[in-house]
């Protein structure tokens, strides 16, 4: 079962944070097809948010075909998301950690790192399209 968290300082709307966390869990395999999402009541009881926010997030996930609501039973995961296995994630994370350490040693600050990473991502996306 997924446990939602809120980052109130992120500037990302609450419903999108819930959507992202489900997608993330699907990518990591911590949520699998057939798993049940917490009910709106369970979510609002832990996060103190408006129930309509939870329903909106679940509707969005439903629209993407990732989950399906079954009347009287709850909301269930329909399919996973491709995005590498847990082992892939661990391996890539180690590589990224090394990269960050080397960049810090070279004198780059956090903003430099973000800019560089963003630029590489953007370039990769352009090459992918071309």
């Amino acid at each position: 079962m997924i446990e939602f968290q809120l980052d109130r300082s992120s500037g990302v709307s609450t419903y999108l944070q819930l959507v992202h966390q489900v997608r993330q869990a699907l990518r990591l395999g911590t949520l699998r097809p057939g798993d049940k999402l917490p009910t709106a009541r369970e979510v609002v009881e832990s996060l103190a948010i408006n129930p309509n926010t939870v329903l909106k997030a679940y509707r969005e996930l439903e629209r993407e075909g990732l989950v399906a609501g079954k009347p009287g039973l709850g909301t269930f995961v329909e399919r996973g998301l491709p995005g590498g296995t847990l082992a892939d994630h661990t391996r890539l994370r180690r590589g990224l950690e090394t990269w960050v350490r080397q960049a810090r040693e070279a004198g780059l600050d956090e903003e430099d790192l973000r800019t560089l990473f963003g630029a590489v991502l953007a370039d990769a996306a352009r090459e992918g399209v071309a």
């Binding site: 009541r41 609002v44 009881e45 103190a48 408006n50 129930p51 939870v54």
Partner: peptide, 12 residues
């Protein structure tokens, strides 16, 4: 937070 959680749960 506790009071708000309780109110939201009732609404849900």
């Amino acid at each position: 937070h506790d009071v708000m959680r309780a109110i939201m749960a009732e609404v849900a």
